[in-house]
Every structure is written in C-alpha cells, then in structure tokens.
Design a protein around this nucleic acid. Structure first.
Ligand SMILES: [Zn+2]
Ligand SMILES: [Zn+2]
Length: 817
DNA sequence: AGCACGCCGACT
DNA sequence: GTCGGCGTGCTC
C-alpha cells in the first residue's frame, strides 16, 4: 500500500492522506486531481500535494476513488506560489485552491435519487412527503437532492430519503459529472464528389422536379466555393437559399450533403495583429531604456508616468520583446470591466496572442483559458486579467505588467484567500524569474516607498505625450458660495460658467460626484427615521427600479413601505444617489445637452458599462456624471472640462489612506480632461479648499504629498512602515464575541512585543446577525512576519481549545487595506 | 466548509 | 408526543 497527501478545497489547515495502489502510486504526481471520498458520503476533488510514499500514517486511511487527470493540472510553479499565498495571507491551501481553480475543475459529487425498478409501490405505506417524492420520480427518472429539497420545500430531506430507502422504493447514489464539455457545433457540407461542377450538374438534372432542393444545393455549392465562408451550418444555408428546414433534411437524407461536428472555441477570437509597434517619443525611449536597465538588474520597475504620458505604449514594446522571445506575459488590471479600451488597443498589436481572463467569464470559458495557458497556446501567450489571473498555469512567464498599480481593488477582501493581486503577482514573477513593471500616474505610497528603499527601480515620465500640457487645476470655495447664496443646487457659478463655455465650444464635460460607499436610502421626513436591515447594522438601500428596500450585506429585501414604520406618516422620501441628484440638476441647467450617468445603477448589466463609454466616445453624450469608475484608465478625446462636485467628502473617511486616495482620485479624474488638443481644465469644488492635500493636487505635487503622508504614517505606525494584520471576531452572541476577542487580545499582548489595537467595534458592528469586532496587530516591517504569524496560529490553536468560544469565528486579513 | 449527531423548546 | 432549532465535533 502507498499513501499520498492531498489538498481538499476546504478551510482546514492540514493535508489529508489517502491510500493508493502501486500503479496509482507510480502514476500520480503533485498537481494531479483525484476524486476522494470525504466525510460521510461525499466525493470531493482533491489535488495531489505529495507523491506517494510507502510510509504508513498512524491513522486509518481511505483509498482514493479515482484519478481525474492524465497529467498534472497544476504545475510546480503554481503549487509553490499557492503555498506562499496560504502562509503569507494566513489561510489554508484549500482556500487558495478554491480561488485558483476554475470551479469546473473542482467537481463534487452530487447526490442523485432514482426509483427502484420494482413492480408497483404500495403507496399506502408512504407518508405525505414520501409520496410526493415518489410521484415526482414517476415523472422524472432521476432527481438531484436539491430538486427534492425544492419539491418538499425544506432543506433537510435526509430523513425522508432514508425512509424511502428502508421501504425499498428508491436508490441513492453519488454521481460525479465531468462538467467540462467542449462546445460542439454541427455543420453541413456537400458530398465530396459534388465539389466537381460536372458531378453536381448531373445530380441537379436528375432532380428537376425538386425545385427547392435544387436551389439549396446550388446555393450550397456557391457558399462552399466562396473562400470567405468557412463552415456552413444548416441555418446558414436555410437563410441563404430561403428554403425550409425540410428541404435541407431531404438533401441530407439523400446523401447529397452530410453533417459533421466540430469543436468550437468559446472564447472571443481576436484577429491577427495589424499595427506596427507605436512610435515612441524621446522621453518614452529614455524611460524604456531605464526600465530595461533595471530589469537587467532583476529589479521590478515602478513606472511613475503622469496621465497621458504614454505608459501603455511602453508596455506594448516590453510585451512585444517577450512575445518574440517566446515567453508568456501577464497583464494585470484592477477591474476587467473597465478594460474594453485597453483590449481594443492591445489587440491591434497582439491580436493572435491575446487571451482574457476574469470572473465575468463563465466556468467553461475559464477552463478553456486555463487549458490554453497550460498548453502554451499562441492565443494565450499574452493574458489580460484581473487579479485571479495570477493563478493560471504559466510555465515560462517572462513579464508581468501591473497597470494602475495603486488601485485598492487589487485586494481581495472576501472570501479567503484575502490576497493582494499586485503583491502576489510580484512574488509570482520572482518564482518565474520574470520581469515586472508596475505603472501608475499616482503610485501607491507603499510602492513609492519600496522604490525609495531601492527594492524597485523607479522610472519617471513627468511629461504628457505630444507635449500636451497637464490639465489646469482650480479650486472653488463652495462654503463662500453657499454662504452668499450663489450656488445653484450643487453648482457654483464658476462651474456653470465653464461648463457653458466648454459645451458651446463643442467639448464634452465630465462631472465627478464622489460619495464613496453611498447608496440611496428611504427616510421619513417627519421623524427622520431611516429603515434599517433587521439582520445588519446598516440602513436598507432604496432600489427604485424594483421598488424595494434591500440590504447590500445580507440580501434582505422588502417592498417599499407606504407609511413610515416608526411614526406612521406617509412622508417617506427617497434620497437618490448623489449622481442622480447632480444629473437632475444638470438637465435643468443645460436642457439642450445630452446628459448621462455612470454609477452602480446604470452599469448593472454586463455591457452597460462599455455601451456608455462608447456612446460618450462617439459624442452621443455631452455631459457624463459619474462616480469613481470615471477615474480608471479611460481615455476620452473630446473632454476639456472635468468638474469635481465636492472634494471634501473624499477626505473625511476614517481610513489612514483617505488623503492618499483623495490625491489619487482627483489627479486621475483630472487626467480625463484635455487629452487630445487644448489644455484641459479641472474645477474642484470644496468646502475647505485650503486643505493641504487639495493644494498638492492642484500643483500635481506628488513629492510633497508623499513626504507629508509618509511622515504621518511613520508617526502613527501605519504601512508602509508597519505591517498590519487584522483579526475579525464573529458570533451571533455579542457578549461571547466580546469576551472571545478580549481573551485573544490579552493573549497576543503577552505573546508579542508589538502593538495590538482593540478589540474595537467596526463601523458596521453586525452583519447577517453576526456581531463583529476587530483586533489590529501592527509591527515594524523589518520584523519577521513569519514569527508573528506563527504566534497568531499558536494563539488560535489555544483559542480553539476553549469550549466557551467554540462558535466564535476568527477571520484573518493580512495587509487589510 | 459541510455534515451528522444530539440535546432542548414549541407545536400538531 | 414529534419537528426543527442550533451547539459540537469530525473529516484522511
Ligand atoms: Zn442585512
Ligand atoms: Zn416617521
């Protein structure tokens, strides 16, 4: 007997050992999948983690069910990277596997139920539930356990099934279905000999009476001869020859045409590249040389280039060199939804090499990209993807591009693994010996700091491409405006005046309404009460479209009440999104121009976002009102003026990064203006325009922001000088949760000579009826994170031994920002 | 994480 | 009396 260690995709911090026979032992290698029985009855997909040994473990083992792969699905680079991730981000390998593998590869067994093929079932011995199940099985041969749950309208159906099993009515079995199915499509073609015109004519003559069939056959001949058509489906021919399906069926029956099946590509196919590499300016050339120089020294590069400096063109040159060398390239972007423009641009140069990977792809599509990358297929040599693309089976990664490096959305918050896409990609690149370039117009403080320390090479591009000037920034004091009653709604006189001028000259305008995390609520104008979620400590948000109130945290929903539940008055008032209000005001101020809104509401659908962008690009919209999404890497040629409705509320967030984020956001939004011809103008309305950050924004004074912020971070022990690990305690019982967190904090204070903050109740103290509290562990980044994490684990183990806290869950988040 | 076992309140 | 709630422990 031989034994293998496997990883199961579950949050348990240990490997499991299964027995295999000799043949299996020789065959199985790390990274292959095996189906294993686990627990009572379920069969799970597990990943072989350690090859077989003859060493018998000290406990009984089960044997594997069967082997799922002929060759490892996961390569050694990946296993190494995933192990790093689990240990750095304090999660289990199983959790990493869950996140990393397209779920298609992680089959679980499904419990299926069938009627036993006996004569007649004596229905009198069945109770109501049992009868219902048997009746349903009469209609449908097999039922999934979930079907039975919905038939009986309850979750626990095991008892019922057991009863039926005892009465010998049904069979239960566990089924594992291989769910990856290549997409097959059926096409038709002429019988081989009919490609000869003479042969065809002969046939046509013989069928002089079947007019429609003749027509279809002739059309088929023409379509086949056309070099532009490839495969012809039955429907294609029907449409082309305008005959009924029966006609074509008749031709098939006669054997004049035949069917064949072809495996189709599910992924978008990008046509081959047409464009030459973009011409670089002398500034860009210098930057490119500097980058390559640092790369020669094996340093990742931080490319700090102002908006419009042409960073993408540099990436394109770097990518081209890697592709020429036959290497794979990963291009990470913060949010794939926002990359239509980027994909269009890259496909002009690298069409045939380009693959895209993100969470909006369905399971089959993701599996297909995975296979393409693993096979080093040409069409997957350059992968554009969101953070999860770091899990793909790269083998010879030559370059990782991390675009908009400063974007906080690179960090995954829930569920585990709570990893940072950029930081994990850096480690991945290190494992591969790949080069890295991280780009931003407003680098994150962490990255700038590491560049300062010499961990990264820093390359600057302070000028816009084509000598365009940076947009001019101007602050508008709206406190004055409100005091003197000079405001029209949210608009200052200056903003209105500039908008008119801009619109009249034919330019487009972007208005930025930045209320982070703000969603519309319903409040009573009589008593002021806002409807709250019964399960969470948050107000319900108002969904105009569906006329309901919904909780974003637990999904609770209720119809919009007519009367205030607190005081009974019918004076409920929906406060719309900030963007909605601004949009309404704009329509009133500029009735002759076309206004559109870009926020969570209007970009709900899959394509809504890119449709809006295209409309704006095509100048079908004059004024675009939007939220943060406007700040991210979009290029609009026709925009001269950008207005920021209220800069203060960016600064008022209780987050140590509020200032940094404000600077980044404003500079990025401002960068949307004046990209093509004239110098752009950015008007920033603020109640306190003298705030240093706002002053630094108007001067584009990144160095000043950087030195001021780093000083504060150093003083208050925040990243990048200190590392932060956040522990969240959760329980339905508030007291128990509080006690547990206090116990844990005390233990940590004894065990660690570092700063422990809390327990402290977070902004939202209850979600899904679970009470929450935080403990923050802060320690100098030069201390060994490894040792501290070990201590946390030891504390957790002791904690788990305490019965009184057994229901309390601890969520660990490393670098929780 | 699932999942089953087992113990207690509140209904036919 | 039974049903279903949830606390408890286990999974190679
Ligand atoms: Zn809720
Ligand atoms: Zn009221």
């Amino acid at each position: 007997m031989y034994y293998i260690d496997v990883i199961l995709p579950i949050p348990i911090r240990q490997a499991f050992t299964y027995s295999v026979n000799k043949d299996e032992a020789l065959f199985l290698k790390p990274g292959m999948r095996v189906a294993v029985p686990f627990g009572r009855s379920k069969v799970y997909t597990a990943i072989v983690f350690r090859s077989a040994t003859a060493q018998e473990p000290g406990y009984p083992t089960k044997s594997i069910d069967h082997i799922l792969d002929e060759a490892p699905l996961i390569n050694s680079h990946q296993l190494k990277h995933w192990q790093w991730m689990a240990s750095y981000y304090l999660c289990t390998l199983g959790e990493v596997v869950r996140a990393a593998l397209p779920s298609l590869f992680l089959l679980e067994s499904e419990t299926m139920v069938r009627l036993k093929e006996t004569e007649l079932i004596d229905e009198s011995i069945l109770d109501d539930d049992e009868f219902q199940v048997v009746e349903a099985l009469g209609h449908q041969q097999t039922l999934h356990i979930n079907d039975i749950r919905s038939i009986l309208d309850r979750h626990s159906v095991v008892k019922v099934l057991q009863g039926l099993l005892e009465k010998d009515c049904i069979l239960i079995h566990e089924e594992v279905q291989e769910r990856y199915k290549p997409r097959l499509k059926t096409f038709i073609r002429l019988r081989a000999d009919l490609h000869q015109e003479s042969a065809l004519n002969e046939v046509l003559e013989q069928m002089s009476r079947a007019h429609a069939q003749r027509l279809a056959l002739m059309k088929m001949y023409l379509l086949t001869a056309d070099p532009n058509t490839e495969d012809i489906s039955q429907v294609d021919l029907q449409k082309a020859s305008e005959v009924s399906p029966g006609v074509i069926k008749a031709l098939l029956d006669k054997g004049l045409m035949e069917q064949y099946v072809k495996q189709m590509d599910r992924l978008d196919f990008y046509p081959g590249s047409v464009a030459n590499l973009p011409q670089l300016s002398s500034h860009q050339l210098t930057a490119l040389e500097e980058i390559e120089d640092y790369h020669g020294q094996e340093l990742p590069v931080l490319l700090h280039g102002v908006t419009g400096s042409g960073k993408t063109a540099l990436y394109i040159h770097l990518i081209a060199r890697q592709l020429e060398a036959g290497n794979q390239v990963l291009y990470l972007v913060p949010e794939i939804a926002l990359t239509t423009q980027l994909i269009q641009r890259l496909q002009a140069f690298f069409g045939e090499f380009l693959g895209v990977y993100h969470s909006r792809y369905n399971l089959q599509e993701r599996a297909e990209v995975w296979h393409n990358v693993a096979a080093k297929k040409q069409k997957a040599r350059l992968i554009i993807g969101a953070r999860s693309a770091i899990f793909l089976p790269f083998q010879n990664l030559g370059l990782v591009v991390i675009d908009e490096e400063h974007e906080p959305s690179f960090k995954q918050h829930n569920p585990a693994p709570r990893y940072h896409g950029r930081d994990s990609a850096l480690v991945l690149a290190q494992h591969h010996g790949a080069r890295v370039v991280m780009g931003s117009a407003t680098p994150s403080l962490e990255s700038s700091y590491l560049a300062d320390k010499g961990n990264y090479g820093l390359v600057k591009m302070p000028y816009r491409y084509n000598k365009m000037l940076m947009p001019q920034m101007e602050l508008i004091d709206i406190r004055e405006g409100y005091r003197k009653k000079r405001m029209t709604g949210h608009f200052s006189e200056r903003l209105i005046e500039q908008m008119s001028e801009s619109l009249e000259s034919g330019s487009q305008v972007i208005l930025f309404q930045n209320r982070r995390g703000y969603s519309p609520v319903l409040s009573c104008s009589t008593c002021g009460v806002v409807s709250e979620c019964p399960n969470c400590d948050v107000s319900l948000s108002y969904h105009e479209y569906q006329q309901q109130l919904r909780c974003h945290y637990c999904g609770y929903s209720m119809p919009v009440p007519v009367e205030c539940p607190a005081c009974g008055s019918a004076t409920l008032d929906a406060k719309g999104l900030g963007t909605q209000q601004v949009e309404a005001e704009v329509k009133e101020l500029f009735p002759d121009y076309r206004v559109a809104r870009m926020d969570q509401d209007t970009t709900r659908g899959k394509k809504a976002h890119s449709r809006l962008i295209n409309q704006f690009e095509d100048r079908e919209i004059d004024i675009l009102v939007g939220t943060q999404m406007l700040a991210k890497g979009l290029d609009f040629a026709g925009v001269k003026l950008v207005g920021v409705m209220n800069a203060d509320n960016l600064l008022s967030f209780p987050d140590f990064r509020a200032h940094e984020r404000c600077f980044q956001l404003l500079v990025q939004v401002g960068g949307r203006s004046g990209r093509q011809s004239e110098q752009g103008l950015v008007l920033i309305q603020a109640f306190n325009p003298y705030h240093t950050i706002l002053q630094q924004v108007t001067q584009y004074d990144y160095p000043a922001m950087y030195s001021q912020e780093t000083e504060e971070r150093r003083q208050f022990k925040y990243p990048p000088f200190y590392r932060v690990i956040r522990l969240t305690f959760k329980d339905r019982n508030r007291q128990k949760m509080q006690q547990a967190s206090r116990w844990f904090a005390t233990l940590l204070r004894h065990a660690l000579q570092v700063e422990i903050l809390g327990p402290e109740v977070p902004v939202i103290g209850r979600i899904r009826n679970q009470y929450l509290t935080h403990i923050l562990i802060k320690f100098d980044r030069d201390l060994s994170a490894y040792a501290i994490k070990e201590t946390i684990y030891r504390a957790e183990n002791r904690f788990k031994g305490l019965k009184e806290f057994s229901t309390v869950r601890i969520v660990m988040d490393v670098d929780p920002y």
